[in-house]
Simulated scan of single mutants.
Amino acid sequence: MSGAAKRVATSSVNWSKLAERLVPEHAAELTRVKGVSGTFQSAVSQLPADLPKIDFAALKKALPAHSAVLDSLQKQYEAVKIPYGEVPADYLKEVDQWVEYNNARIKLHDVKVADGLQEAKKVEEKWAKAPPVEHFDRQHFVEYFPAHFYDLRYQNRIPDPCNIGLNETAEIENRFKDYKVLRRADKVDDH
């Protein structure tokens, strides 16, 4: 195994652990990224770890007229250092912002889950105190199913047997808040 392949092998991705953490909808993307990574690793494994060595002394003997140019090329060639694994600061900044965003989403999700658990506990407590369904009467339906059953003796609702949403807005109550019948001129008020 070449030196370049050793460097890539030490920083390889644990695909099975990544597959466990992803949702099944992202399996295709994971397979695609895995293929691209495999292609990259096979290309890198064929390359040597370092730049090839050039015998500048032999070149200077073969081309004595160009020794100044060869000296300049030798200095430039030896000064070439290709760092491995350095990520530009801009990309690291974007990754940090993305991590902060995802952490905020996770915290929000945790808060929503905690609220949902509290609501579920309230519902479970309500149903734990409820009588058996065989013993339900009209008052129980109003208490346990308030969206579908109502008691007009104490609830300020309009009967809505067709479920067209009369109680969802206050428009009908505002429209008919004065229950007096409007007088019409052609009506005779003699009875």
Rank of each mutant, 00 (worst) to 15 (best):
T39C: 05
Q41K: 14
S42C: 05
A43K: 15
V44S: 09
S45F: 03
Q46D: 14
Q46M: 13
Q46C: 10
A49V: 06
D50H: 06
D50G: 04
F56M: 02
A57T: 14
A58I: 04
L59I: 03
K61I: 10
K61T: 14
A62M: 12
A62F: 10
L63T: 11
L63D: 15
H66C: 11
H66I: 05
S67R: 06
V69P: 00
L70Y: 00
D71G: 08
L73V: 01
L73D: 00
L73F: 00
Q74W: 03
K75V: 03
Y77G: 01
Y77S: 00
E78L: 07
E78S: 10
A79Y: 04
V80K: 14
K81A: 14
Y84A: 14
G85N: 10
E86V: 15
E86Y: 13
V87A: 12
V87F: 08
P88H: 09
P88T: 09
A89L: 11
A89I: 10
D90R: 05
D90F: 08
L92Y: 07
K93M: 09
K93R: 12
V95P: 04
V95D: 12
Q97P: 00
W98A: 13
W98G: 12
V99T: 11
E100V: 11
E100Y: 08
N102F: 08
N103P: 00
R105Y: 08
R105H: 09
L108E: 15
H109A: 15
H109G: 14
H109M: 15
D110Q: 14
V111G: 08
K112Y: 08
V113I: 11
D115A: 15
G116I: 02
G116W: 01
L117Y: 08
Q118N: 13
Q118I: 12
E119N: 13
A120D: 07
K121P: 01
K122W: 02
K122M: 04
V123T: 11
E124A: 13
K126V: 06
K126H: 05
W127S: 02
A128W: 05
A128Q: 09
A128E: 09
A128M: 06
K129G: 05
K129M: 06
K129H: 05
A130G: 03
A130Y: 01
A130L: 02
P131C: 04
P131W: 05
P132L: 08
V133I: 11
H135K: 13
F136I: 00
R138K: 11
R138I: 04
Q139M: 06
Q139F: 07
H140K: 07
E143D: 10
E143S: 09
Y144R: 01
Y144E: 04
F145D: 06
F145I: 02
F145R: 03
F145M: 06
P146C: 02
P146W: 01
P146S: 02
P146K: 01
F149H: 04
D151H: 00
D151L: 01
L152Q: 03
Q155D: 01
Q155W: 02
N156R: 05
N156T: 03
N156F: 02
N156M: 03
R157N: 04
R157G: 01
R157D: 03
